[in-house]
């Protein structure tokens, strides 16, 4: 690694005034070598070392916090997924899109597409946004048996930023609980207990918001044996 440049620059004093004469002298080589050197250190060594240590110490998180059920990967603990069955809690609206299987140059709505995160990016006075919220509110009231014109929790009718939000608000979950219990033929109190168990509190009491993890709650519901004479309606 020793370079002749070093030796010519340091000990020989007479060269210094010559170097000072042109501000460019002795800069081009170090700039080019510097780019390669810093690229190797920060773009290769650092991420690879971090990957090695992380995979060794925290392999589950480092590989995406995947949740397995019966030997198959059912999702990631951090990534939301779409639910529409009456026996499941429903997540927030998602604005993610995916390629149209008929015509790959076009895209269509694919909620919770974890291959292409996305928000609606509609501004506050956008007609399209207000129309969507109005439609979602009407659908939400109908699905959950709410009175016409009842105000709906705002997170239930607005698209998240990532389109992959794994959580809903407690208010949103409460509004859905009766419908889920009815659909599964479960005691509402039991659904409430599961809901409480899957409500995550604020971190350290102040950070973030209390929230319900939809995938975990729905998995817990699936784990409850269906009452006698009741078909498992969850997957309808």
């Amino acid at each position: 690694m020793s370079t002749p440049t070093m030796n010519t620059l340091t000990p020989t004093a007479p060269l210094a005034p010559a170097a000072a004469a042109s501000p460019l002298a002795g800069l081009l080589g170090p700039c080019l070598r510097g780019a390669v050197f810093v690229a190797l250190v920060t773009g290769l060594a650092y991420p690879l070392l971090t990957t090695g240590v992380a995979q060794l110490v925290l392999p589950r998180q480092a590989s995406g916090s995947l949740i397995e059920h019966g030997g198959a990967v059912v999702g990631s603990a951090l990534i939301g997924q779409a639910f529409s069955g009456a026996g499941y809690f429903h997540p927030r609206p998602s604005a993610t899109v995916g390629p149209d299987p008929q015509d790959a140059s076009k895209s269509l709505a694919v909620p919770y597409n974890a291959g292409a995160s996305g928000g609606s990016n509609q501004g506050p006075t956008n007609q399209g946004l207000i129309d969507s919220v109005t439609e979602r509110a009407a659908a939400y009231r109908q699905t959950n048996g709410l009175a016409a014109g009842a105000a709906v929790p705002v997170d239930a009718v607005t698209a998240s930023a990532s389109g992959l939000d794994p959580h809903i608000s407690v208010a949103n979950a409460q509004a859905q609980a009766a419908r889920v219990a009815r659909s599964r033929g479960l005691d509402p109190a039991q659904v409430q207990r599961l809901l409480a168990a899957h409500t995550e509190p604020r971190v350290l009491g102040v950070l973030g918001e209390p929230r319900v993890h939809v995938l975990r709650l729905n998995m817990a519901l699936d784990a409850v044996p269906a009452p006698a004479g009741q078909a498992p309606a969850a997957l309808k």
């Binding site: 927030r92 509609q122 705002v154 939000d165 959580h167 809903i168 407690v170 973030g208």
Partner: peptide, 19 residues
């Protein structure tokens, strides 16, 4: 107590409004 409220379009539930 059960929701952060506010303009939640384009926001994530774990962060709510304040974060």
């Amino acid at each position: 107590a059960t929701q952060p409220g506010g303009n939640m379009e384009g926001k994530e539930m774990r962060f709510g409004i304040a974060d």
